[in-house]
C-alpha cells in the first residue's frame, strides 16, 4: 500500500499544459523541470505538490505531443502515480519507461475529489479512500518493476545484472 493525496483534473489534459512547449527545447535540471509542471493548468500545483501525491484525471490524459518531459516533470515533482480513465498511447509508454506509474481506472476518477487521501494497492489493482474501494487494471510485476527501478534503462540494467 502506498499513501497519497489527490490533485484532480479533467479530461484531455494535454502535454502542453503538463509541460509547456516553451521549455521543451531547454535542457533543465530535474528540480527545475518539477517547478514547470502544470504551469499553464494549475499554477498552485508546483509549489503545493508533496512526494507521494497522485494525479487523478478523466479520459485521454497526456494527449498531444510525444515530449517525454511531460512524464518526467511529474516524477521529478514527486508524483507517484497518475490515475485516469484513459491515457494517450505515447504518454502511457513514456510515463512507465520514465518510472511514473499510470493507472487506468474507470470508477475512481469521477469519485475522488482534490485533496482526498488515498491508498494505492499497486499489486492488487485497488484504490482505497475512506472505506470506499475502486479498481484499476493492475500493472503486471514486470511493468511495476520498471516503475520501481526508476525507468526502463535502469530496469534493463538491473535485470541484466541479476543472473
Amino acid at each position: 500500500m502506498s499513501k497519497g493525496r489527490v490533485w484532480k483534473y479533467g479530461d484531455d489534459v494535454n502535454t502542453d499544459v503538463i509541460y509547456a512547449g516553451r521549455y521543451t527545447y531547454q535542457q533543465l535540471e530535474p528540480a527545475e523541470m518539477a517547478k514547470k509542471a502544470f504551469e499553464d493548468l494549475d499554477p498552485a500545483f508546483a509549489s503545493g505538490v508533496k512526494p507521494g501525491d497522485v494525479i487523478v484525471a478523466g479520459k485521454n490524459f497526456g494527449c498531444g505531443s510525444s515530449r517525454e518531459q511531460a512524464a518526467a516533470c511529474l516524477r521529478y515533482a514527486g508524483v507517484q502515480a497518475v490515475i485516469a480513465k484513459s491515457f494517450s498511447r505515447i504518454y502511457f509508454r513514456n510515463a512507465i519507461n520514465l518510472g511514473l506509474a499510470v493507472l487506468q481506472s474507470l470508477d475512481a476518477p469521477d469519485a475522488l475529489p482534490s485533496g482526498d487521501e488515498i491508498d494505492i494497492d499497486f499489486e492488487g489493482g485497488r484504490i482505497l479512500s475512506g472505506g470506499r474501494v475502486f479498481t484499476f487494471f493492475p500493472l503486471p510485476e514486470s511493468v511495476l518493476g520498471i516503475v520501481r527501478a526508476g525507468g526502463l534503462l535502469e530496469w534493463t540494467k538491473k535485470k541484466l545484472a541479476t543472473p
Binding site: I96, P140, V143, I146, L152, L153, K159
Partner: peptide
C-alpha cells in the same frame, strides 16, 4: 530506448 532494451532482453511490455 525501448528498442535498445529489446535488443538486450528480447522482451517488451
Amino acid at each position: 530506448t525501448e528498442m535498445a532494451s529489446i535488443w538486450a532482453t528480447d522482451e517488451i511490455w
